[in-house]
Simulated scan of single mutants.
Amino acid sequence: MHAQGPTGIYGGRSAEARRSDRQLRLLAAAREIWGAEGWAAVTMRGVCGRAGLVDRYFYQSFPDRDALLGAVWDQERDALVAQVVDAFVGNADGDLVGALRTVIDAVVEHLRTDPACARIVLGDHTGSAVLEPRRREMLRTFADLLVDWAGPRLPQTTDPARLRMSTLLGVGGFAEIIAAWNAGELDVDASQITEHTAVVAALLVGSHRPR
């Protein structure tokens, strides 16, 4: 049996490594609960029980439940943003409408294979002072990415304000479709989501083409 020495090593692992492992277990447990039951079901006791940890370890990683919710949400947001950025990079020289379809398909596929991510970042966050602002900020982030990427591919006469309004309209509508789909309110498959939203995206892009 390994004893704990003055360096904090116990069982061959440092105190920092053990804290990091416990934090990851708490995040994973919270994600599982949230993905299955929604954010309101995530409690300190429930998360600790699922992670197999006593309560005091929770507060070594997070000051309160809101901090845990924010950390889980940020983790899922980062994964989704990475999907979008990778899709943009992979279509740097592609046709605008075709590239948008590829980006949409990548996001839909990510959310189809990971419905917990869809529920976490695009689900109903009503009543959470921590999550509601994050969702709004995420939609603005996606709108900014689209504007920065599509803007140079549109005519120089494109009105930036109109482009941003169109982009916010498209991003917000897409988020609501995914949320409804994930909640079982839309009886369609992933390919139908991609097809419909790509058509709408093409219409929005077309509205900024020269007549």
Score class of each variant (00 low, 15 high):
168 L>F: 09
140 R>A: 15
205 V>L: 10
204 L>C: 11
26 L>I: 15
36 A>T: 11
27 L>F: 03
153 R>W: 05
132 E>H: 01
191 S>Y: 07
9 I>F: 11
208 H>N: 06
116 A>G: 13
117 C>Q: 06
210 P>T: 04
103 V>S: 09
179 A>T: 05
56 R>E: 02
109 E>I: 14
49 G>Q: 14
174 F>K: 04
25 R>I: 00
61 S>V: 02
3 A>Q: 02
47 V>G: 04
142 F>D: 01
122 L>Q: 09
132 E>V: 15
144 D>A: 12
180 A>M: 13
130 V>F: 05
108 V>D: 07
145 L>D: 07
48 C>A: 13
67 A>W: 02
91 N>W: 05
94 G>Q: 02
103 V>T: 13
1 M>A: 07
49 G>S: 15
2 H>M: 02
24 L>S: 15
48 C>Q: 07
178 I>V: 15
151 G>R: 15
52 G>W: 08
145 L>P: 06
124 D>Y: 00
25 R>G: 01
176 E>H: 07
163 L>Q: 10
210 P>L: 03
97 V>M: 05
126 T>F: 01
148 D>P: 00
197 T>W: 14
141 T>R: 15
52 G>K: 07
171 V>K: 09
107 V>S: 08
198 A>I: 13
90 G>Y: 02
50 R>S: 06
89 V>R: 14
154 L>K: 10
32 E>K: 11
186 L>V: 11
88 F>H: 13
123 G>M: 12
118 A>D: 04
182 N>T: 10
130 V>G: 03
174 F>Q: 03
160 P>N: 07
146 L>T: 15
207 S>Q: 08
58 F>Y: 09
197 T>I: 08
157 T>H: 13
198 A>N: 09
187 D>L: 14
138 M>Y: 15
96 L>S: 01
74 D>H: 02
25 R>K: 11
128 S>K: 10
4 Q>R: 13
155 P>F: 00
4 Q>L: 10
36 A>S: 14
130 V>R: 14
140 R>K: 04
142 F>R: 05
27 L>Q: 06
52 G>Q: 06
169 L>P: 01
6 P>F: 13
9 I>C: 08
61 S>P: 00
10 Y>F: 13
97 V>W: 03
142 F>A: 05
21 D>V: 00
159 D>M: 08
133 P>C: 03
17 A>K: 03
76 E>K: 07
193 I>N: 06
99 A>H: 03
84 V>W: 12
8 G>N: 08
210 P>W: 00
27 L>G: 02
139 L>W: 02
109 E>P: 00
211 R>H: 01
189 D>P: 01
181 W>N: 06
12 G>D: 11
159 D>P: 08
127 G>K: 07
48 C>L: 09
192 Q>S: 13
115 P>K: 10
30 A>Q: 06
90 G>S: 03
126 T>M: 00
149 W>G: 06
50 R>C: 05
146 L>W: 14
162 R>N: 04
